[in-house]
Design a binder for these strands. Sequence first.
DNA 1: GTCTATATTTGGATAGAC
DNA 2: GTCTATCCAAATATAGAC
Lengths: 217, 217
Amino acid sequence: MLSTMATSTGTPLSEQSILATLEDSGDTTGATAVRLMMAAADAFADRGFHATTTRDIASRAGLSPAGVYVHFTSKEDLLFELSRRGHQTARDQLVAAAAAADSPTEALRSLIAGFSRWHAEHHQLGRIVQYEFRHLTPQHRDTVLALRKEIDAVVRDVLVRGVAEGEFEVDDVPATALALLSLAVDVARWYSPEIRRTPADIARTNGELAVRLVARR
Amino acid sequence: MLSTMATSTGTPLSEQSILATLEDSGDTTGATAVRLMMAAADAFADRGFHATTTRDIASRAGLSPAGVYVHFTSKEDLLFELSRRGHQTARDQLVAAAAAADSPTEALRSLIAGFSRWHAEHHQLGRIVQYEFRHLTPQHRDTVLALRKEIDAVVRDVLVRGVAEGEFEVDDVPATALALLSLAVDVARWYSPEIRRTPADIARTNGELAVRLVARR
DNA sequence: GTCTATATTTGGATAGAC
DNA sequence: GTCTATCCAAATATAGAC
């Protein structure tokens, strides 16, 4: 597989490369399927899953309404693929950022900066990941829930390490981990490409705020 | 008008009393309309605006499908009333919390604690306020946007005062205000009545984290 | 793999009796 | 102000030709 994994400082993945992410066991995601996923990501992020019609997705991808069903079994299946691939790349990025740092403080800064940046640069996918979640079937929701737990664990682990090494002072680790994730996740809610701050600005300020939230005083 | 305004320490408003909130110029919100709003709040928070049917709302309120239209002109009108009343009580609570404190530090703690608590106790209304926003008509969206700007201003004002009085050290006031709001707003996304932490717990920890985020070091 | 045409269901909203 | 009955538009998904 190509070395397309983004680090918190590297060039970000394009939407297309995220969606084309290969399956574990080699794969075959065709160009048209990727185009459909990009069209659906646009539409779902903009209007929400249930307000988006399959006709809308098809026409944005340059297909007839029936064209969708050659590549996906249902509209929900399209949401699932977006959600799964989105969660996977988000998690991969977090894990890479945590592994690359050489102190808990730098790991946390890199983690929250990178996750904030991801939610800005991929705010469409970010919204789908964070807010369209509930429209998955129970089975698909379970699959994605496992990825969400991995993401939570990465943040909690850094906090525990920072406390153990005396860099952090944290009263309640799970509560603080959730607050840190809120900082980054909520970017998907308010970010728009038109605002003053760039994704890099947001990454820098949120990374700083994250460190400030836990640093020993 | 009755003195039902909640402070960050007082007894919280019931869902019913929030939704029955009187209009500026005296009012007439009937009991059935309130029941419909509560049913719609349940459904919209649970499944989202577009996934909720008017039939579902009606039956939850014990009415026939046609019964809705005696009290509201459309499904969107019901969303608007929920959104408007929700924003108003959220704003009122913030303004009261800010006014009651006698230092910027206490004002900020009270503000974020109260807002976090509101999003936990009224997490259904909170989700509607924060996430169903985009499904309003452009006109209704504008009305609600004005309330949102007031909310943002309250937080920014406290930060500016705290910096001026030497209690806070803040690099970027708008960015930090947004981060503080993220902390509280995101509660609506993850809160569930089944979790370990109570709304009071969440208020206390988030209030502390907020102060820590800006306090002079 | 893509199209046109369409089956079928669902859902917002209204008519008109009581 | 609530009901039953219903209209009609919209939307998911399929059939079958090319």
